[in-house]
Simulated assay, not measured.
Amino acid sequence: MIEVLPETQGDMLAVRVSGELTNEDFDLYRELIRDRMRKYGAARLYYEMIHLDLNRVKPGAALENAFFDLVHGREYGRVAMVGEKVWQEWAAKLISPVKKKGVRYFDLHEREQAMQWVQEGKV
């Protein structure tokens, strides 16, 4: 499931993902981020993961999303990934090289710092 957070504004997309991620969830994410890239030339992203289970992520949708990130990686501004599991931190490190400004990982208890970093570049 993907939830758009109220901090979403301008070129920044803030989302929380949890549980099962479907093709529709990934489609919504790509549409929202693509709209910001078109309108502003780049997009900042706050991506929070809670109770996310890899076994409940649709493989085809995840691969399509990875391809989207490869193609559009240079159109991302700051990206903060916030999570609660070691594999999430590894995922952030894995995708960081394809993003223009990289990806910074924060633990779930650091969510306020992550949001501030994406919004203002501080922390």
Rank of each mutant, 00 (worst) to 15 (best):
G121E: 04
G121V: 09
H72T: 06
D69T: 10
M49N: 08
E31Q: 11
R36S: 06
A80D: 00
N55M: 14
L13H: 01
G41D: 07
L28C: 13
D27C: 04
W117G: 10
E31R: 11
V79C: 00
L108P: 07
V15N: 03
V57L: 03
G10I: 05
E24T: 05
R36G: 05
E84A: 01
T8Q: 02
R16K: 04
E3A: 02
R111H: 13
L63Y: 15
M115Y: 12
I33A: 08
T22F: 09
R16N: 08
M115G: 09
K100E: 14
A43K: 00
W87Y: 02
K122F: 05
G41T: 09
A43P: 02
F67V: 15
A14I: 15
A43N: 04
V103N: 02
R56K: 10
K99Y: 02
R56T: 07
E7I: 07
A114V: 05
I2G: 06
N23S: 11
D27P: 01
V82C: 04
H51D: 15
R78M: 00
V57E: 05
Y46K: 01
E120P: 07
E120N: 13
D11F: 11
M12G: 10
H72Y: 00
E48A: 08
W87V: 00
Q88E: 01
R34A: 13
V17Y: 06
V123I: 12
L63N: 10
G41Y: 06
N55W: 11
P97C: 04
F68P: 01
M12P: 08
L70M: 13
V86L: 08
M1H: 13
G83D: 00
A66M: 05
L70H: 14
W90P: 06
L54A: 10
E31A: 15
M115S: 13
V118S: 10
M1C: 15
E20I: 10
E110K: 04
K58M: 12
E89T: 04
Y105D: 09
I2L: 15
Y105A: 06
L28K: 14
L28P: 08
V4K: 05
V15A: 03
H51C: 14
Q116A: 03
L70S: 14
V17R: 08
R38E: 14
K101E: 15
N65C: 12
V57P: 01
W117D: 07
Y105C: 05
W90L: 15
I2S: 04
G102K: 02
T22L: 07
E112L: 11
K39P: 07
R78P: 02
V4M: 08
Y76N: 03
A80F: 04
K85F: 06
V15H: 14
R34V: 08
R36C: 02
